[in-house]
Design a protein around this nucleic acid. Sequence first.
DNA 1: TATGGATTTCAATCATTTCTGAAACATAGT
DNA 2: ACTATGTTTCAGAAATGATTGAAATCCATA
Lengths: 219, 219
Amino acid sequence: MARDTTGEANGAGGAGGGGGDDPGVTLRAAQDQFIACWGKMGSAWGISRTMAEVHALLFITGEPMCTDDIMERLQISRGNASMSIRALLDWGVVARAHRRGDRKEYFKAEQDVWAMFRAIVRERMKREADPALVSLHEIRDLTSGVDSSKRKGRRRGGRDGVREGGIADETAARIMAHNQRLDEMLKFFETVQTLTDRFVSPSGRGLQIAASILGKAAS
Amino acid sequence: MARDTTGEANGAGGAGGGGGDDPGVTLRAAQDQFIACWGKMGSAWGISRTMAEVHALLFITGEPMCTDDIMERLQISRGNASMSIRALLDWGVVARAHRRGDRKEYFKAEQDVWAMFRAIVRERMKREADPALVSLHEIRDLTSGVDSSKRKGRRRGGRDGVREGGIADETAARIMAHNQRLDEMLKFFETVQTLTDRFVSPSGRGLQIAASILGKAAS
DNA sequence: TATGGATTTCAATCATTTCTGAAACATAGT
DNA sequence: ACTATGTTTCAGAAATGATTGAAATCCATA
C-alpha cells in the first residue's frame, strides 16, 4: 500500500516522501525547530520574536514566499506578517522578488550569513549605539564648564568655584572624576564604532576573512 | 546669606555648592541623564531597564552605595533594587563592599570600561549564544541521516532514498541545500564564539589593545 | 477612471515582562 | 534565645510590547 501520499505542502512545490521517518517530514521538523530557535534568539536580543521567525523561515527554506505563505506557515495574522516583512526589508536582510504572471509580492532572505550579520550589526548600530553616543557627548558637555581643568573664564561675584577649600573643592574633585569616567566610556564607544564601521563597510569582507582566520588560529 | 545650604545628598558625602548653576546641581543632572541613557540602551539590548539604571548609578557616581541609597536615588522598591543588585553581582559588573562599623552591604561598580564590557559579553554569550549553538547542532543532526552525502548505511526495504527520480530527488536536493545553509550558519557562529572567547579570556586584554589600535589606525 | 486583488495601517486586545510591597528569612550582638 | 537590623522572595499590580482584524489605501489592468 502506498505510504507516500501524506501530501504536506513542502515549501513551494509539494514533494512528500514516504511514511514514518519520511525525509519531507524530517525536513519540515528541522525547519520548525530552526524557526523556533531563531525566534528565541531574536527576542533575547531585542528583536520581536515574530520578526525573527519570519526571517528564519525565509532563510531556512531559501524559497521566495508571499505574505499568505508566511501567514499560513507561521500561523500569524496578515497585519503582523506585513509589518514583520516590512521591518525585515528595512533592515536589508530580506529582498522583494516577483514571479512571472503573478501580481503578488514574494520575499526572499539574504543567503550569505556574513552579509546578513553585517546588515544586522549596521542597523542596530544606527538605531541604538549611535544615538546613545550622541547623548553621551551631550552629557559630557554638561560638565565641561565646571571642570576646573577646562573652565571658561566665567566667574560670578568672585566666590562660585573651586576656591576657599573644603566643600567646593570636593565637588570639583567629584566632577573631575565623573568627567574621567565619561571620557573613558566615550573612548570605548568610539573604538567600537570605528571597528564596527569597518566591519559593515562594503569592504568589510576583508575583516570577515581576518575574523575567520583569527577564529581558527591556534588558541 | 548662605546659598550653599541646599542640602541635597550628593552621592555619599553631601557637598552642595551655591545657587542657579551650582556645580553640584549640574553634576547631579549629568548623572541623571547618564542613568537614563544607560537605561534606555540596556532595554534596547535585552537587559531590564532598572538593572541597567542601577548599574549606571553605581558606575557614574563611583561611590559604593547601599540598597537604601539606590532605592532613594532611583525611586524604586526594595524588591526591585535587591533583585537588580543580585543580577549585577551575578553578571560580575558590580562587587560587594563593606564599611567598618556598618552592617549594611555596599555595592560598587567595576570601573574599568573594558573589563566591564568583557564581563557583559561573557555573560550574554553564556546565556544566549551558547545554548543557541547547541540547539543549532541538534537541528543539524536531525537531517544528517537523510543527507545522501553522509547517510549512515540504514536502507529499509530498498526504496526510501534518492532513487526512482522526480519527487524524492527533489526532497533530497532540498535537504542538501538546507544542510548547507545550516552548516554555513554553524561555521559563522563558531567563528564568532572563538573570537569572543578570546576577547573575554583573562588574557583578553591583548585583544583589547589590538582593537584600540585597529580602531584608531587610518581608515 | 472604474475594478478587484494585494498591501498597509491602526485602534483595540492580548501576552509578557517588570515592579511593588509586605512577609519570610538571615545574622550579629546582647 | 531574643531582638534589631538588613536581605530576599514572591504573588499580584502595573507597565510595556506584540498581535489581531477589519477598514483604508494602493496600484496594475482594462
